[in-house]
Amino acid sequence: MTDRELILQRIRSAVANAPEPPEIARDYAERHHHGEPAELVELLAENLTGYRARVHRADDAGLPALVARLLAEHGDTSVAVPADLPAEWLSALTIDVRPDAPLSAVELDRTSAVITGCALAVAETGTIVLDAGPGQGRRALTLVPDHHVCVVRVPGQVYPSLPLAVPELDLRRPLTWISGPSATSDIELDRVEGVHGPRTLDVILLG
């Protein structure tokens, strides 16, 4: 007998006399905050800031200058971008822009920043979700460089809660959920921001 057959057989005999479980009572809240879209954007900003992401606001006209300023302030000399990132977002940059053609891991390691969009954001948890869709690129892109600038269209991309956001996701795509910069509490439970992922996360709320 293969391990596959063995495991399946053991499961079937283990649960043979177990009662059929009840219908799952999903009587938990669909959302915990009931504000207007603008208030949800506020909540998202607050929760992102709470986890030490830096939150900025811009409209389409102001975006290129803000992107350029954030990279300059961080001292970035190069920036990786998904090949399909809107060109106007980069129009004020004077540093080395590297479209992911793709870039090798070592090349990414030598690139100081990355700019992407996102699939959606969740206000209650302060989460940004990337799904490798338009303007987001593959997963390694937003991981290896030390500075991630992420653009969220508001209020259109903002969902109040997990129960309202999860059904919107396509799990066949690779998903990365980001809630603040990388962090660890492994030493005496003392939280340190920035271990392996980008140590600086700038979120631009565009709208």
Binding site: G50, T127, R139, L162, P167, P174, W177, I178, S182
Partner: peptide, 29 residues
């Protein structure tokens, strides 16, 4: 189901590291 994530991604981070959400969650198929 996919929907079950809305429950467990509320339960797990708060119970383990006392966070509203952990910094990174990866999903792949």
């Amino acid at each position: 189901t996919q929907r079950d994530l809305e429950v467990f991604l509320q339960l797990l981070p708060r119970s383990s590291t006392a966070e509203r959400m952990n910094p990174y969650t990866s999903m792949w198929t």
